[in-house]
Design a protein around this nucleic acid. Structure first.
Length: 311
DNA sequence: AAAAGATACAACCGCTCCCTG
DNA sequence: CCAGGGAGCGGTTGTATCTTT
């Protein structure tokens, strides 16, 4: 029971996370920052393996995550990036800072793949493996697979270099690792190609409000599943958020404010109320520039044209 | 109204890469 | 240089929810 659980089969909980576990995890990370996942289960008493904790945080509880309601711009970016990079979801996700690789992967598998397929068959002629065969790759020959892999690797390296240079040029470097949570840099990035818009001055307050919001978003489900604990969870989040905010001199977000934000984020169908991805055109332009340097103007011009029409 | 089928997505598993001693 | 272990990635699965019959 009271032994250090680490990915052994016995005593390590699996399956869906409970609200109580979420709160424990979030409050621990608020104090210590993300990373060093090995220590999380031991220090928090969570009967989860470190891997599970990391996954829960990066894919679900991490602040600033936008869920569902993919915009057309995002659709296009994902489609183009997938064509360009293949199923390298982490790389793709680095261009969509609000989305997780898992989310993008799921969205691709459930929506976009289908959408693309139907579009292709609507056009009559099925052009064979136009996206380097990277998409499903099941039927591509061995030779092309190898070539594809090398090409992708090289391309990604170059993209990273370009982005790094760009980041430095903007003196936007990420020294975030050591100083959680006092810095103004956005802390919880899990993908290497970091290219983010400059964080706002109040980014931390917002960040933690988002974190609470992520949890608050779960409340309806919690209510449904365990009416007894949900009130407790709600209160705990409130307390937690308040405590952290006052500890660090930030604005305290009330529940109503949080739910307001939540409903705002969730209701993207409202015309004119759509949440724009910050610097999306900027991000995409960088992508275009990088790819153009690699001599893939055709594909990327297409990308540009489509995005131009969208902006 | 209920059962069956389809879909969406959170979470897990296994593998690879990379860091440290 | 090498071995061990942690972190991260992509594929896959299990299950809750939605849709159809």
């Amino acid at each position: 029971m009271g032994r250090p659980p680490c990915c052994d089969k016995i005593g390590v909980k699996k399956g869906p996370w409970t609200p109580e576990e979420d709160i424990i995890l979030v409050s621990y990370i608020q104090q210590n920052g993300p990373g060093n996942w090995r220590s999380v289960p031991t220090n928090t008493g969570l009967m989860r393996c470190s891997k599970s904790c990391r996954l829960r945080w990066t894919n679900y509880l991490r602040p600033g995550i936008k869920r569902g309601n993919f915009t057309d711009q995002e659709d296009n970016m994902i489609i183009h990036l997938q064509a360009l990079l293949g199923n390298r979801w982490a790389a793709i996700a680095s261009y969509l800072p609000q989305r997780t690789d898992n989310d993008i992967k799921n969205y691709w598998n459930t929506h976009l793949k289908k959408k693309l397929h139907t579009n292709n068959s609507d056009q009559g002629n099925h052009h064979h493996h136009h996206h380097h065969g990277a998409s499903t790759s099941s039927s591509s020959s061995e030779a092309t697979t190898i070539a594809k892999g090398q090409w992708e690797r090289k391309l990604q390296t170059d993209i990273n270099k370009a982005k790094q240079a760009l980041t430095e040029a903007l003196s936007l470097d990420n020294k975030s690792t050591t100083s959680w949570p006092q810095t103004t840099t956005i802390p919880p990035i899990n993908h290497q190609p970091v290219m983010l818009p400059p964080p706002a001055d109040n980014s931390i307050a917002t960040t933690y409000a988002f974190s609470a919001e992520n949890i608050a978003r779960l409340l309806p489900n919690w209510l449904k599943n365990s009416p007894k604990s949900s009130q407790t969870s709600s209160d705990s989040i409130e307390t937690l958020n308040h405590q952290f905010a006052s500890d660090h001199g930030f604005k305290h977000y009330t529940n109503s404010e949080i739910s307001e934000t939540t409903s705002f984020l969730q209701d993207e169908s409202k015309p004119g109320m759509e949440v724009q991805i910050p610097s999306l055109s900027f991000l995409e332009k960088c992508l275009v520039d990088d790819a153009a340097a690699q001599g893939h103007e055709g594909l990327m011009n297409m990308c540009l044209e489509e995005s131009d029409s969208l902006f």
